[in-house]
Design a protein around this nucleic acid. Structure first.
Lengths: 245, 245
DNA sequence: AACAGTAGATCCATAAAATGGAACTTTGAC
DNA sequence: GTCAAAGTTCCATTTTATGGATCTACTGTT
């Protein structure tokens, strides 16, 4: 087992609910002899992948990691275009926006656009949502075939319900949710892909259920749809379904 | 030389002007036999630290890296507090804000708060600025002693000018710049530290020179100063100089 | 202040992985 | 199709990781 693999596993432990790690935590969570964990963290520290918090024994990702997310975003023309659309839409309506991508059964935000309204959904980059249970996730899952979704969710009892929802997303061209992941929060999401790199992202706008009526919803949907359609046309995304509003 | 060190060196290549890498680039930039570079990138790919862009031979940071910057931010109470202040100040004035920290002679943004004004400075996270040549960098450098600054900038011909500027920052409690790094852009920065972890960050607001007059400048400075002072009091930052406005 | 309990670091022989030069294969341009 | 550049694989050698046990440094308790 390469030490790189172990180092990557340590980095993977930094999830939504884990901001720092100790030798013991690594020992137990990765089921690894503590001698190894101790030396592994030391080596990662020396390489700059980790740093200790103050002079405690808690570790967090090193400053080296701070630029990498930015490099990732810049490397993708798709994300750049999506960012333009989201900041435009976010600015116009004052709600919070995300650009997300799917990793297996989860979606991760790669960029966030905090809203400006007094009552807005607080942006929460780094938090991972189950793809099947969020509008943004379903907009991305809908780009897979039913077979691929079946393979991905093999053994899941709610598979049929999911497939039905995805079928609707494929027809309408967009996904919505109302108070699904978070009470009081609705969202609209549209996915678009870059055929050149085979990557897909979702443009997602989240807003407080209470402050947006049907016509507000439609306006945002139209703005999002216009932006996504423009990207799809520019990149030649043949799998894109122009949203029917 | 540990492979972790080499992997970290590869990650370090992803800077402001480098969004993707090939085997050859790694070979030349790290002066490494191409056999090693090839295997190194392969191992990093398999570990998830890198991914190829589409099916080309260009590499970018893996999706694994997307959460790490967020974990870093969450691990720091200082950054959390600073974020609250910046989003408050950013929202009130509509200008773009940053939270930065110093790494050697450079400053990196760890969080950005895009402005809402029509004419605003576009946020540019991941870009590194020379600490000596930016308000935010000088606000952080001013927290060092003259001896430490001398050691850091040993051999730099502009050292004396820098020390003089830092001395002024230490007196006034804040740093400013006018059209220094970017034409037409001014900024105000105040640094604050957490004595518990020995980390310091700078709260920095950037705005178009043309649209802010002296009283607008003073208002923003006062807001930034109030927020920074609150943080310094909460954390017991004894090195903090309450800004004199 | 002495104590226990726990977290972390270090030591060691063994097992596994990295190294770099060279040969080989693939890719892309003309 | 040909060629040069880019990338991969091979090999013996050197270096590094492994994991059990031991030693050390903290944390909190009485």
């Amino acid at each position: 087992m390469s030490i790189l693999k172990n180092a990557a596993d340590v980095l993977r432990l930094f999830g939504a609910d884990c901001t720092d790690l100790t030798v013991s935590e690594v020992t137990t969570r990765l089921d690894m002899p503590k001698a190894n964990a101790s030396r592994l963290l030391k080596a990662m520290r020396e390489a700059g992948m980790l740093e200790t918090i103050g002079d405690t024994r808690r570790h967090r990702p090193g400053r080296l990691m701070l630029d990498l997310a930015a490099a990732f975003r810049r490397s993708s023309g798709l994300i750049g275009r999506a960012s333009e659309v989201m900041s435009e839409v976010g600015l116009r309506f004052g709600h919070t926006g995300y650009i997300t991508l799917r990793v297996g059964r989860e979606v991760t935000a790669v960029a966030d656009f905090p809203g400006t309204n007094a009552l807005r959904v607080v942006s929460n980059i780094g938090r991972r949502l189950p793809a099947a249970m969020s509008a943004t996730g379903r907009s991305l899952l809908a780009r897979l075939t039913d077979e691929e979704v079946r393979a991905l969710y093999e053994g899941d009892t709610a598979l049929d319900v999911l497939l039905e929802k995805l079928s609707e997303v494929r027809t309408t061209g967009y996904a919505t949710s109302s108070q699904e992941a978070t009470p009081g929060v609705d969202s609209i999401a549209i996915a678009v892909a870059d055929p050149a790199t085979d990557e897909a992202v979702s443009l997602c706008i989240v807003y407080p259920h209470a402050v947006v009526d049907q016509s507000g919803h439609n306006e945002m949907l139209a703005a999002l749809a216009a932006g996504a359609t423009r990207i799809a046309e520019e990149l030649g995304d043949t799998g894109f379904v122009t949203p029917k509003i």
